[in-house]
């Protein structure tokens, strides 16, 4: 009896082996590329010295973290970071699904390929260039909006780069403009993976197009949405630096609505160039993201264990 159990156990262990082997190259890569450099977390607690190196430098406790909180902007930049990310998650997901559904409805027509390629193009531009485009539209003297559109409507020109009220909308639009095509691809792929016979059956039962979308496509997309959202939550304390720095042209008047944790760190460390402090900022952003994602994952696990991340 005992023997049988051990044999069985052995077998089971052996059973995992082939799968582990398949995963092994990827695991090794992640260990090398991601986990070993995580040792750099030391830097966040060290007063870095070039002579002494990472491990030899003096410990300085949490000194490197202080600069993140000792500012009147601490609350403002945290709020901005979170709110923008939430807006990106919600609006981005909704619109990306919409585009994906539309594309899939059109099937394999030639124009679909063109649509998809065209929507992807903005993603290939760097933020610096996008900054130029936005400037081309919003510039006070020669900008497209002031010079052409507002003139045509006989409205007074607006000084966009000091008009705080408009920027939340501008930033969200620019983000969507750049990323929509990219995000919709994920959903297009998911929809492509749905078994076609389900739709056929529904059509035979007389379900309308809208009904099919709402009762088949959207529910089938739920796992993807959950996973993507969970992943975004993990990075909720990070922000796309280029979007918040290059696009508003670093305009001081807009800091109230454009300052995020990343831009604060960049502006603060531009001169100091301090290895320890930038490492500290990274640790802070990750720890918060980590805690939030654990919470979110727990909630998902409770209601929908299948789709939890881990």
């Amino acid at each position: 009896m005992e023997k049988a159990v051990t044999i069985k156990r052995k077998q089971r262990k052996f059973k995992e082996l082939p799968l582990l082997l398949i995963a092994l190259p990827g695991i090794l890569y992640l260990i090398i590329n991601n986990y070993i450099p995580m040792l750099g977390i030391f830097l966040a607690f060290k007063d870095y010295s070039f002579i002494k190196g990472i491990f030899g430098s003096d410990w300085c406790g949490f000194d490197n973290f202080k600069f993140l909180f000792k500012t009147g902007d601490a609350w403002k930049m945290t709020r901005n970071t979170i709110l923008y990310n939430l807006a990106f998650i919600v609006i981005g997901t909704v619109l990306a699904i919409l585009v994906a559904v539309l594309i899939c409805e059109l099937g394999k027509r030639m124009r679909v390929k063109i649509f998809q390629a065209a929507l992807l193009l903005p993603n290939m531009l760097s933020w610096v260039v996008i900054g130029y485009i936005v400037y081309a539209f919003l510039n006070a003297d020669t900008g497209f909006i002031n010079n052409t559109i507002l003139k045509f409507l006989k409205l007074d020109p607006i000084s966009w780069y000091s008009f705080t009220g408009a920027w939340p909308a501008i930033l969200v639009s620019v983000f969507l403009w750049k990323n929509l095509g990219y995000q919709s691809i994920i959903f297009t792929a998911s929809i492509a993976g749905i078994d076609k016979s389900i739709y056929e059956a529904a059509a035979i039962d007389g379900a309308s197009k809208m009904k099919q979308i709402f009762y088949i496509t959207l529910p089938m997309l739920k796992p993807t949405v959950i996973i993507l959202t969970l992943m975004s939550i993990g990075r909720i304390f990070y922000s796309d630096f280029g979007l918040f720095y290059q696009v508003p042209q670093n305009s001081g008047a807009l800091y109230g609505v454009t300052q995020t944790i990343d831009t604060y760190v960049y502006r603060g460390l531009m001169e100091l160039n301090d290895v320890g402090m930038s490492a500290a900022a990274g640790v802070y952003q990750s720890v918060i993201g980590f805690v939030l994602v654990l919470l979110a994952n727990k909630i998902v696990r409770k209601y929908d264990a299948e789709n939890a991340l881990f």
Binding site: E16, L30, N34, L39, L43, G282, V283, S286, F290, L309
Partner: peptide, 25 residues
């Protein structure tokens, strides 16, 4: 059926949360 799937999933996901920065890499 894979016993370590959750461990592995966490192992993979964690690399998204934190990176050691350019210096150690």
């Amino acid at each position: 059926s894979f016993k370590y799937r959750n461990v592995l999933a966490f192992f993979v996901f964690f690399t998204m949360l934190y990176n050691g920065g350019i210096v150690p890499s």
